[in-house]
Design a protein around this nucleic acid. Structure first.
Lengths: 196, 196
DNA sequence: GCTTTCTGCGACATCAATGTCGCATATCGA
DNA sequence: TCGATATGCGACATTGATGTCGCAGAAAGC
């Protein structure tokens, strides 16, 4: 009855999403998980997984795209073109932390991070670099270091914070303030000029 | 003839070290390299590799121990129990950066990072936590965030800097100053109180 | 020089993950 | 209720990495 061959049935879409979700969760914990284990974790059968994703590579690409989409949505919601750069940056970091597991999935491993599908991610990074440069121009963000490094260090700290929450090093409620503090001001205090 | 069965021949030790070195270098780039490729990269034969390390797991453990040893040596050389905490911390970060590739090897992948052989690493981390607490006690290091998080964020930024040098985002000569700057002061500048 | 040791080389078996298929059953949508 | 679709299930072949072995040649040590 193919009402529209391009639009898969709702049921099919649901299992597809379930599998992707399970794959990301499993891959964050262990890059070497078996497709069987992913299928189990998704509450489905390995054969079904193969029906949705012919090969491991296909599932990987789908998971990457899904993650990038969510990170892009979060970035979008942070409205980083609005308001003072530092405020925007705080919103951005907070947004990143909410999708910390996706970020870890994308950058935990070079095989994934260097995947062609992640290259598309540069499109998401553009506005962020613009934001950083804007802050550097008005002096509110450190102009003495490359903007690319600022972006990189942000990612690194968000990554670390997300991981710290997962393994219990940080409590969920303290992660954001602690992260913002470290990103903004580092770890050294200068009592003479600023004792806060 | 066995002059001493516990002391392997010099030649044997050399190839062993060569293989370990090649393994770390290869694993940093790609967690899924074949033992054949590692052997090739070491300029030896796969069978020889198996003579030194019966299985992949053995080579992994040896590589982990080797890396931990070098990181421990670097930490030792930083003399972090000496002098003002902030100075010691700067020396420590600089020392970490010199062994950045080992650090990336150990923490790039959960399979390695959670390996029992890495647990021994807690022994290396003890003095670092002491250092951080010392700085928090005298007010030169941010006392408002957990010391474990400070240590974690240091690792994360060293990791990122080492990676940035490797992929060309940072030039080798600028990596250390940029890293120290970010670790110490974060990325936000506060013109009213400190315009440097 | 000679003996010991280590390495190069290639063959072989093994094993786990992957990918494919056919059929029965359950579930969804009209 | 009925037809189409999606899934569960298990069997099968394939493939690539791994680990083992024996032998011959090179290198190191005395």
């Amino acid at each position: 009855m193919q009402s529209d061959p391009d639009v898969p049935s709702p049921a099919r879409r649901r299992t597809r999403q379930t599998i992707i979700e399970a794959a990301i969760a499993a891959w964050v914990r262990d890059r070497d998980v078996t497709l069987s284990e992913i299928a189990d974790h998704a509450g489905t059968h390995r054969a079904t997984l193969h029906r949705h994703f012919p090969g491991r590579a296909d599932l990987l690409v789908a998971s990457i795209r899904h993650s990038i989409g969510e990170i892009a949505d979060a970035t979008e919601a942070a409205a980083i073109t609005q308001g003072p750069p530092v405020d925007a940056l705080n919103r951005l970091v907070a947004a990143y932390l909410t999708v910390g597991d996706r970020i870890r999935f994308l950058f935990e491993d070079h095989t994934v991070a260097n995947h062609p599908a992640v290259a598309q991610f540069a499109a998401v990074g553009g506005p962020v670099i613009d934001l950083i440069r804007r802050g550097q121009a008005d002096g509110t963000i450190d102009p003495t270091v490359p903007s690319a490094w600022i972006e990189r260090s942000m990612w690194a700290l968000v990554y670390a914070a997300s991981e710290a929450v997962d393994d219990g090093t940080l409590a969920a409620h303290e992660a954001l303030p602690v992260l913002l503090r470290t990103v903004s001001d580092g770890i050294v205090r200068h009592p003479r000029r600023d004792s806060s």
